[in-house]
Design a binder for these strands. Structure first.
Length: 420
RNA sequence: GCGAUCAUGGCGAAGUGGUUAACGCACCGGAUUGUGGUUCCGGCACGCGUGGGUUCGAUCCCCACUGGUCGCCCCA
């Protein structure tokens, strides 16, 4: 038996790394005053159709959708924002005293795709959403948080790319201009671009095959279509980033795959060696119309999401060692039947006193028990044999120094507490 | 969804149309009747992703399926 395609089991040895990363992200969120929200991993299919957008790849071909026993169309969430906004509206969080509402989430997402390194059918995203503020400083805060998530874990080779998609008006005007621009030469474009023309004309600008087509150079840029408000907003976001000392590049061809984005869009990519075709670590942007689209009051929002899998890939690509303590305080060795019983009691006593303690359960020879203790990185080995039992002591060996001494059995816990 | 490639013990990795499927690491035991290392000796795949087919006979040939990886698409 194997797990379904595109899924993975996280086993002891790596779960510790995940826990470390997750704890870091939660700590980071707390410092920026973002609070955790947990939403269901499945939702009504309609939420994503309306929220993410009917024309997106996610909705058109990547969703895990099924009908439940009550004949409802259900979808495993492919991303986090739609659910968070739905919850924000449903529970009327816009009415709370503290605004903007700053939320973070972490959990599994599902997309039906052809898996490869860094692209899973079930993957874990951490993301934040700030709802209720249309301040360029808010955009900068979210970007800063995203960058720090990587920086604080030790990553160096990062590239922050930003762009503005403008407000809805700017965006739609630009889209139409692109369609007008490329339609006359549609037949000369590659098949991908011909379908992009309807779906997502901005993508054409990114095409590798049609890079040299004459229409490329003359294509209208989004920046030309930004109205005054949009242009000014984008400039202010950059001013805030500059003030915070966050380096970025503006890429006017940066397009996000989800329909709800407007104004600020950004992506963080890894420059590290050994990254394949997939270099995007996280992405986000502003979505001022989404709350209203999902039935709430007109409320601006901005957020981003990162994949823990890709974050961990980046850590490995940059050879970042996470400071994970895998040692054990004590390992108790028993020799003889009588000692075994006493050793079990002492082990339990040490554990209750807070020591990470283990013992042998395979009736191994003393030598083998020492090897086991060594493998487990035990700091102290406690040996209880017939001699010790007779004298009511237990031998305590410091595995690092090699020193060993006998300690009275009824003193053992306080003795260990004293030296640990 | 399209194209390519791969699949042998816990891990890495040889291999051949035909008696007992190399080797390395790890693990277990012994040399060393109670101390972690080294060395030496021994043990460890009724089995070569799954299911069919070809054949006197297949881990090795063919087909399908499943899964991994890479590229495209797209993204996190």
């Amino acid at each position: 038996m194997k797990g379904p395609r595109g899924t993975q089991d996280l086993l002891p040895g790596v779960t510790e790394k995940w826990q470390y990363v997750e704890a870091k992200l939660k700590d980071l969120s707390a410092r920026y005053n973002y609070h955790e929200i947990r939403t269901p991993i499945f939702e009504h299919t309609e939420l994503f159709q309306r929220g993410v957008g009917d024309t997106t790849d996610i909705v058109q071909k990547e969703m895990y959708t099924f009908t439940d026993k009550g004949d409802r169309s259900i979808t495993l969430r492919p991303e986090g924002t739609a659910s968070v906004v739905r919850s924000f509206v449903q529970h009327k969080l816009f009415g709370l005293a503290n605004q903007p509402t700053k939320l973070f989430y972490i959990g599994p997402m599902f997309r039906y795709e052809r898996p490869q390194q860094g692209r899973m059918r079930q993957f874990v995203q951490f993301g934040v959403e700030a709802l209720g503020s249309e301040d360029p400083a808010m955009d900068a805060e979210v970007i800063a948080l995203a960058m720090n998530a990587y920086r604080e874990l030790g990553l160096q080779s990062l590239k922050l790319v930003i762009n503005s998609l403008g407000d809805t008006e700017s965006r739609n005007n630009h889209r139409q201009a692109l369609i007008d621009h490329f339609s006359p030469v549609k037949e000369e474009l590659c098949s991908d671009c011909q379908s992009r023309l309807e779906k997502n004309p901005l993508r054409i600008l990114d095409c590798k095959k049609d890079r040299d087509h004459p229409a490329m150079g003359t294509a209208p840029s989004i920046l030309e279509f930004l109205n005054d408000y949009s242009r000014n907003y984008f400039e202010q976001v950059q001013a805030y980033l500059d003030a915070m000392g966050i380096a970025y590049v503006v890429d006017k061809n940066l397009v996000r795959g989800l329909d709800y984005y407007n104004h600020t869009a950004f992506e963080i990519m890894s420059d590290a060696e050994g990254f394949g075709a997939i270099t995007t670590l996280s992405g986000g942007g502003r979505y001022n119309g989404l709350v209203q689209d999902l039935g709430g009051p007109e409320t601006p929002g901005i957020g981003f999401a990162l994949s823990i899998e890709r974050l961990r890939m980046a850590l490995e690509a940059e050879n970042v060692e996470l400071p994970i303590d895998q040692s054990l305080d004590c390992f108790v060795i028993a020799l003889g039947d009588e000692a075994k019983v006493k050793a079990a009691a002492i082990t339990e006593q040490l554990r209750q006193a807070g020591m990470q303690t283990d013992k042998d359960y395979l009736d191994r020879k003393m030598k083998a028990q020492f090897k086991a203790a060594d493998r487990l990185k035990a700091r102290f080995v406690l040996v209880l044999g017939e001699e010790e039992l007779e004298n009511n002591v237990i031998a305590v060996k410091n595995m690092e120094s090699g020193e060993q001494e006998n300690v009275a059995i009824d003193q053992i816990t306080s003795y260990i507490e004293g030296i640990i």
